[in-house]
Design a protein around this nucleic acid. Structure first.
Lengths: 138, 138
DNA sequence: AAAAGTTGATAGTGAATAATATCAGGTTTT
DNA sequence: AAAACCTGATATTATTCACTATCAACTTTT
């Protein structure tokens, strides 16, 4: 369905983002990005993914945050509110309780594919999270 | 009024927190803590301040966040909602717009003394911020 | 008057971090 | 069949980070 947006292979993506392939896989292991993966396990990235990677690099290189800090900041995204996660599901959901991992690194009980989930897709910086809070808190 | 709780001088506080006096002043310059200051400019710390310092040290030593990350995480506290900051005041307030500095490091238009403000006092970790978000988002 | 505090420098240290590189053995894509 | 990918190591690098230490000149507390 949305698969056609995932056009870049990892080598091209790394080139576009100005980093090495290894670093890209590292960001993934650290929970900062989720690529689309084909059945063959090969990764594919969209233009939006490239933007996200650049956003993360900005946080690291310009803002001087470390990866742990970025991950914990993203862990504050109120996924339960954004996805309207019902109370009984929240209770059991690691994502709701954790402040050390973003929801897409947990056992999120919302059946969505995180790659296409708005909670993952729409946030990569403190600014984007804060803006969402302003919206949600009226 | 609340001044009697600020009982420790900087040397004693550093000792209680297990760090050097210099590091304590560094945390202050970095925007992580605000000590009470007498007219003579000498700093005084409460027991709660000591706890806050230990909380910050936990984030650094155990969680491996860096100071920039902690500051930016604290910048997400929805001060405007907590203090019921009216719309016209928000507009002009740096704290409302910034995601790089906590409100107590900005020109917050709420006339409160930040040392005694709940926005400063009640939050020192991602967990405490997330818990507040849960409360405010119903 | 001595001890502890103040601001504002400057310098140094050890550990951690982000990132690159490379190897191996295998699979997928082109 | 060659190029690019995969997982999973290991090693190395340069930089940054948090922190300590020390100096100076001055002020406050005890």
């Amino acid at each position: 369905m949305v698969q056609q947006e995932y056009i870049h292979k990892i080598g091209k993506t790394a080139e576009l983002a100005g980093i090495s392939v290894h670093t890209l896989r590292m960001y993934e292991k650290e929970g900062l990005i989720i690529p689309f993966q084909k059945e063959s396990k090969q990764r594919r990235y969209s233009e939006k993914d490239v933007e996200r990677i650049l956003c993360i690099r900005k946080a690291i290189n310009d803002d001087k945050m470390n990866i742990e800090g970025i991950r914990r900041l993203l862990s504050l995204i109120p996924c339960w509110k954004i996805t309207d996660c019902p109370e009984n599901r929240r209770k059991k959901c690691e994502a709701f309780h954790s402040s050390s991992k973003p929801c897409w690194q947990t056992d999120c009980k919302n059946g969505n594919d995180c790659v296409n989930c708005t909670v993952y897709r729409d946030f990569c910086s403190g600014e984007s999270v804060k803006n969402k809070l302003k919206e949600l808190l009226e």
